[in-house]
């Protein structure tokens, strides 16, 4: 076990922030060669850097292209670290498994995509079902992936009822208690979340990450 050297720490932070995949991967391999534990790299460098990037996005200091580039880079770095951990017999566990999608008939997915990016970069395993996702597709994916959280997005008031029908379907097949349901999107409010019996509501992408973390604490 070795401490993370400053040049690795600062370099990786900078490369992640700038979405520089090549440099990030190189620094990650350097760190591993120096004996840094993958988990230390994740906890001490990657997560704090991505938390800062998420906050900058929230504050409009950076925009979606920068967030996407950092997210893509973080995914590549995490894949390297995961491979090392698995091959050395360590257990690589995510913070939790989130099945996410934009609800049936709704094709607006940019907000959902941002949440997916942020969740992945914070260490969640994200199964993104895309847009126009039928309630049964949420159910199938939740069972198949052994999800912890079902995250639904809806932009339109006309598609919002599908958040309710999705939860109702899980109730109908006696699966409601197996998962936490969170919702968000342009037409979603806390009142609506309360009305349909969702476990949580997030008004924006950054708070969706915090919401998922808090959900995992009670699971």
């Amino acid at each position: 076990m070795a401490n993370i050297r400053d040049e690795i720490r600062e370099g990786l932070r900078d490369a992640l922030t700038n979405g520089d995949s090549e440099r990030s991967e190189k620094l990650t391999y350097n760190a591993l060669e120096q004996g840094v534990l993958p988990l230390d790299l994740i906890q001490q460098v990657i997560v704090p850097t991505l938390t800062k990037i998420g906050q900058d996005f929230q504050d409009f200091a950076i925009f979606l292209p920068e967030l996407m580039a950092s997210g893509d880079t973080a995914e590549k770095v995490t894949a390297i670290l995961e491979e090392v951990m698995v091959s050395s017999g360590q257990n690589f566990s995510s913070l939790g498994i989130v099945v996410i999608g934009t609800v049936e008939n709704d094709v607006h997915d940019i907000g959902k995509n941002i949440v997916s990016t942020l969740l992945r970069s914070h260490g969640f395993k994200v199964i993104d079902l895309g847009r126009d996702v039928a309630p049964s597709a949420f159910l199938d994916a939740a069972q198949k992936e052994k999800a912890d959280i079902i995250a639904m997005s809806s932009l339109m008031t006309t598609t919002r009822p599908s958040t309710r029908s999705t939860i109702n379907l899980f109730t109908e097949v006696n699966q409601r208690g197996q998962y936490k349901f969170i919702i968000g999107g342009g037409c979603i409010t806390q009142d609506w979340a309360n009305e349909i019996g969702a476990d949580g509501y997030a008004p924006d992408a950054a708070s969706a990450v915090e919401l998922c973390k808090s959900m995992m604490e009670v699971i």
């Binding site: 409009f60 979606l64 940019i110």
Partner: peptide
């Protein structure tokens, strides 16, 4: 179009 979205600023 979303300001802050895919087009950036």
């Amino acid at each position: 179009p979303l300001i802050g979205g895919l087009g950036g600023g």
